[in-house]
């Protein structure tokens, strides 16, 4: 319980620092933010923007008032984009991104776990060597290249899957998954490689343990030994890395959302960058950062659930 409390305190500190960094970045903008945002507008409008951003007040005060707005869900307004407010954008984009990442993780684990377990069981076999080489190659291909390849082959050349766009799950389940296939596949490849490599080496170590020999001596079948006895103790590093890897995944998702026009957080963010919506962009960045930190915090919880050695320590 104590460690949980310390962890929670740490979490709050990291989130505060994170919002601070993304807010302060804005005050480092070259030149007058109001001029930048309102370029081409009449001085009156620029003055309005200046008041709204409280540019004449000291930075800490501005940060605090921004933070209170941020926490209460007030992300301000777009200055140029027509239609919608930043918070409305987040309300649809966040679930979309989360869903995309969830699908990716499920797909990646669904492929990586059996693959890692089997190659560890048959370490140094031809199958194992092939899988290792494939993983090495997969790790060397950037996600966006995979995305463009998939898009070209499946959508442009053969027209079997939609080229881009997104259909919410609530609207049409079939179409939803049809649109999700390519972005998820593009994101999954490198994740599979990372998880597979990790699980394989951990499994190989676990399979040397006495309790595995013991399980064999009990007369259990290999499949039960592998999946019931060896997998769980081997999956702990996997879990940590899966958590940390969300950072890479989010980065990849920004691009993949762009490439497949999936209206997720990354799409929103890049749109904001292109249209120079600085204040909204900072909020989006803070949200993505917080998401990442929270996911890692969640992983710590899961860790304790999976490993009784930690729970009862």
């Amino acid at each position: 319980m104590r460690t949980l409390a310390t962890k929670a305190a740490r979490l709050v500190v990291v989130i505060l620092l994170l919002t601070m960094v993304s807010f302060l970045a804005q005050s480092l903008l070259p030149g007058d933010p109001a001029e930048l945002i309102g370029f081409g507008a009449d001085p009156e409008k620029i003055g309005e923007i200046r008041t709204e951003l409280e540019l004449d007040r000291p930075v800490p005060v501005r940060y605090l008032s921004w933070l209170t707005d941020f926490v209460t869900g007030d992300l301000g307004d777009y200055y140029r984009n027509k239609g919608g407010t930043p918070i409305e954008g987040v309300k649809t984009a966040l679930p979309t991104s989360l869903l995309l990442m969830l699908y990716t993780q499920i797909a990646a684990l669904a492929v990586a776990i059996p693959l890692g377990v089997l190659t560890a069981y048959r370490a140094d076999s031809l199958f194992d060597k092939g899988a290792n080489i494939a993983a090495f190659l997969a790790l060397s291909v950037p996600g966006f290249v995979v995305a463009y390849l998939l898009k070209k082959y499946f959508a442009l050349d053969n027209n079997v899957l939609p080229e881009s766009g997104w259909v919410p799950l609530t609207e049409n389940v079939g179409e939803h998954f049809k649109h999700a296939v390519l972005p998820v596949a593009a994101l999954t490849l490198s994740q599979v490689a990372v998880y597979f490599r990790l699980l394989r080496s951990d499994m190989i170590a676990t399979l040397q343990e006495d309790f595995i020999t013991m399980a064999r001596a009990k007369g259990l079948r290999p499949r039960r030994i592998l999946f019931r006895h060896a997998l769980r103790p081997s999956s702990l590093t996997l879990l940590t890395v899966a958590g940390l890897n969300v950072g890479t995944l989010i980065s990849a998702a920004v691009l993949v959302e762009q490439i497949f026009k999936v209206p997720g957080m990354g799409f929103l963010l890049v749109e904001g960058v292109f249209s120079r919506e600085y204040p909204a962009t900072q909020s989006f960045i803070a949200i993505v950062g917080i998401l990442f930190v929270l996911i890692n915090y969640l992983v710590d919880f899961l860790y304790a659930v999976l490993d009784p050695r930690i729970r009862h320590a």
Partner: peptide, 12 residues
């Protein structure tokens, strides 16, 4: 087995 510390599955 020799070592009861390692011959039981720690997470079961």
């Amino acid at each position: 087995f020799q070592d009861p510390m390692t011959s039981l599955n720690p997470v079961m």
